[in-house]
Design a protein around this nucleic acid. Structure first.
Lengths: 337, 337
DNA sequence: CGTCGTTACTTAACCGGTTCGGCAATCCAG
DNA sequence: CTGGATTGCCGAACCGGTTAAGTAACGACG
C-alpha cells in the first residue's frame, strides 16, 4: 500500500498539484465543481496530509510545546501537571495540533529547550507554567519570538498573554475561614517562594493576618510530601503550636494530616487543616480535608484556548480563569479551648 | 536574523550542499579536513537542522508516540502515568528524539490515533501501555507497521516486544505476607479485569489463596479513589468481613484506609491493608501503608531504551523489568482475635 | 604507460506539500 | 464589437534537507 500524495490525487482528478492544494485547503482559485471532485478523490484514497511536507513549505509545525521543569518522580506525585496536561489535550483533540511535552530537570534546561525549539521551528507556540518572580523565560521567549501563554498572575507576566487564578482572593477566603472559626494562631506551609503564585499567596497571607490581627508563621518547602510532613511535625511539636494550618497543595496537606495523627492528635479537634488544589485525595482522607478547590483540567483547557486565540492574531491579554473556591470539609473546626 | 541552512554553510565553507550533509552526518564521502571545516562553520553559524526537512527526505520523524486512554481527571489523580512519562523523557533527553503525548478518551480513539500517526508518518515508534487481554492494538500496529514496545506480560504481547513486571510473583508475595501474619479472610480490590495486569493478578490471587487455603473475594473497580472507597465500605460492613485487603493501586488503598477509619476501625488492629505501586503517598498516611513497590520512573526509562533498541534493529523480545518488592509498613499486622 | 580502484567531491533528483506568475477562457462595461 | 477585469487552472519554483549517480584527480599495479 503505497503512500497517497496530492500528486496521485491530481492525476486521478485530472488537475494539477497546485489545484489540488487549493481545493484541499478551501482556498479560492478552483471552481466548486473541481473542488468537490478533488475532495471526493482524496476521501476515496484516504489521503492524509504529510505533516513534514506541510511544515516545510508552510513554516508551521502544527505543534505546541509544554516544558515541565520537574524530576520524573515529582511528576508522578503531584496532581497538578497531569490534570493540566489532560485539559490542554482535551482542547487540542478538536484541532489538528499536537502537543510536544518535554520534562526537564531545571530552569536552565527549560530555557535551552525553548531556544532549541525556536531554532528548529519545532513548535508554533508554548505554554509556560510555574511562572516566577522576574521570570527569565519571558525575555527569552520575546527574543526568540515564540508566541506564549503564561500560566500565572498578570503582575508577573510583563505584558505577555497570561491566564491566572486570583490567589489573593483565594488566600483571603482561606484565612477568613479559619479566623471566623476562632483561630488566632495560624501557620502556612508554602511552596518555594521563587514561584510566583507562592509569592503572591505569601503576600496575601501576611496582609490578611495583619488585617485580622492573627498570629502567623510561614514555612517554605519544595511542595513534596516529605517536606510537608517535616514542616507539620515542626509546627505541631512547637510550643505554642498553631491551631490551623493552610497548605500550598494537597499532597502536603495529606502528609500533614498523617503527622498530626501520628502525634496522637486529631483534626479538627486539635488543629484545622486547609489544603490547596483539591484533587480527589482531599475527599478520601479521614477526616476529609477542607480545600481551596479549582478545576485544574478546565484551567489547562482555558490556557490552550487562549494560545489558539493568540495564534489567530488576538493581541496578548491577561485572562482571569477563576478564583479557587473554599470547600469546607471535616478538617475544619473551632480551635481547642 | 535569517535562518541558517546547509546551503549557507556550503557557501561559506566553499563546498556543495551534499558535502555539507555528509560532513554533518558523519558519513563517508568527505575528507577529515573538509569535515572539520564544515563543522566549524556550522558551529559558528549556530546551525540547527530543520526537523521537517530532514523528516521529509529521510522519512524519519525523530519522534516517539505515547497514547494514554484516560480522562483528563483520572490522569491527574493516578501516580502511574506521569511517573512513567517522566522515566521515558529521562531517556529521551539524552537523544534527539521527541515525545508526542496524546491523551484520548477510550480505546477506539487510541486506535484511531495510531492509524493517523502511521498515515502521517508522525512517529517512528510507539509505547503501548495498559495492555489488555486480546488487545486490539496489537493487530492494528502490526498492520500499519508501527514499531512498538508493549508494557505488559509476554503472554499478552503475541510476540511483539514487551517489558513486564512479574505480577504473579508479586501477588504471591503479597498473599503469602498476609497469610503468614495469620489472615484467612482476604479480599482483593482490583482494577478493571480487561487490563492484562489485573487479569494476571486475579489468576495469581486465586491460585495463591487456593494453595494456602484462604477464604477470598475479589471486587473489581475502575481504579478510582471513589470506587476503592465504595468497595472497602462494602467489604468492611459485611459479616463476616475480611481481615486483610490487597489493593490494585495506592490511590484506592489510601481511600480504603480513610473508610476504615471513618467506620471507627483501625489498621492494622482491625484490618491489614496492602497497596500496590507504592508512590510516596503510602509513606505519608497514618498508619503508613504496606505496599508492593516498584520503580515506575525506571520502568518508563527501561521501556524507552527497549524502543530505541528496536529501532536500532534489535529483534522484538520480552524483557522482565523487575518484580515488585513487598515493603512492609505499619498497616500490616495479625488479624483481630 | 595504460588501466583500474579509491577518494573526495559535485550535481541533480527527490521527499510532499504551498504558492506565485502566467495564460486562456469567460464576463462585463463602454 | 472591443478592451479590460475576473475566473480557473497550469507549470514551476521553493521549503531544507538526503542521497544516488556522475566525475575529476590520484595512486597502485601489471
Amino acid at each position: 500500500m503505497a503512500r497517497v500524495t496530492i500528486k496521485e490525487i491530481a492525476r486521478r482528478a485530472g488537475v494539477s498539484k497546485g489545484a489540488v492544494s487549493y481545493a484541499l485547503n478551501n482556498q479560492p482559485g478552483v471552481s466548486e465543481a473541481t473542488r468537490a471532485r478533488v475532495l471526493k478523490v482524496a476521501a476515496e484514497l484516504e489521503w492524509v496530509p504529510n505533516r513534514a511536507a506541510r511544515q516545510l513549505s508552510a513554516a508551521r509545525s502544527e505543534t505546541f510545546g509544554l516544558v515541565l521543569a520537574r524530576t520524573a518522580k515529582t511528576l508522578g506525585e503531584e496532581p497538578f501537571s497531569m490534570g493540566f496536561v489532560g485539559g490542554v489535550e482535551s482542547v487540542l483533540a478538536r484541532t489538528s495540533y499536537a502537543l510536544a511535552l518535554q520534562v526537564v530537570a531545571d530552569l536552565p534546561a527549560e530555557l535551552a529547550t525553548y531556544r532549541q525549539w525556536a531554532a528548529e521551528r519545532r513548535v508554533d507556540g508554548v505554554i509556560v507554567v510555574d511562572l516566577r518572580v522576574e521570570d527569565p523565560r519571558i525575555p527569552l521567549l520575546r527574543k526568540v519570538g515564540l508566541p506564549a501563554v503564561l500560566v500565572g498572575d498578570p503582575s508577573l507576566a510583563d505584558g505577555m498573554a497570561c491566564v491566572w487564578t486570583d490567589g489573593t482572593s483565594a488566600m483571603n477566603a482561606a484565612v477568613e475561614h479559619v479566623a471566623s472559626l476562632g483561630h488566632r494562631a495560624v501557620a502556612r506551609v508554602a511552596g518555594t517562594p521563587e514561584h510566583g503564585h507562592v509569592w503572591i499567596r505569601d503576600q496575601a497571607f501576611t496582609a490578611a493576618s495583619l488585617r485580622l490581627g492573627l498570629d502567623v508563621q510561614v514555612v517554605h518547602t519544595d511542595f513534596s510530601a516529605e517536606e510537608g510532613a517535616t514542616a507539620t511535625r515542626a509546627l505541631m511539636t512547637a510550643n505554642p503550636r498553631p491551631t490551623a494550618i493552610i497548605y500550598d497543595n494537597d499532597l502536603m496537606a495529606v502528609a500533614g494530616l498523617a503527622v498530626v495523627q501520628e502525634l496522637g492528635l486529631r483534626s479538627p479537634h486539635d488543629v484545622t487543616l486547609v489544603a490547596w488544589d483539591d484533587s480527589t485525595l482531599c475527599r478520601h482522607t479521614h477526616p476529609t480535608l477542607t480545600a481551596m478547590s479549582h478545576n485544574i483540567v478546565g484551567y489547562g483547557a482555558e490556557v490552550m484556548c487562549r494560545l489558539l486565540d493568540l495564534l489567530d492574531g488576538a493581541r496578548p491579554q491577561a485572562h482571569l480563569y477563576s478564583t479557587p473556591l473554599l470547600i469546607v470539609r471535616d478538617s475544619s473546626g473551632p480551635p481547642p479551648p
